[in-house]
């Protein structure tokens, strides 16, 4: 599985809690809105922090998108 942290920008209120709970995954722009790295989350610890952020977002704007790794990209 690959996991990505995603934000629904039309819901996000710019509370910035995500950047506190998952500082390595989320930056805030100059107006306080999240900028999320596009790379998939690799380590279990990252995944854990992402889950915290999702659960804590007051606007319910964050989610963890998980997809099976496409066969072409799978390591042998």
């Amino acid at each position: 599985m690959t996991h990505h942290l995603k934000v629904d920008m039309d819901r996000c209120q710019g509370h910035g809690i995500c950047a506190v709970l998952a500082g390595d995954l989320v930056d805030l722009d100059q107006w306080g809105f999240p900028v999320i790295a596009s790379e998939p989350l690799s380590e279990p610890a990252q995944l854990r922090r992402a889950r915290w952020a999702v659960a804590a977002c007051p606007a319910r704007a964050l989610q963890l998108e998980s997809a099976p790794v496409p066969a072409s990209e799978r390591k042998r």
Binding site: M9, D10, C12, G14, D29, W31, F33
Partner: peptide
């Protein structure tokens, strides 16, 4: 802008 997303509203 429809005024919903911070980056669009401010940016």
């Amino acid at each position: 802008s429809s005024g919903q997303c911070g980056p669009c509203v401010w940016g």
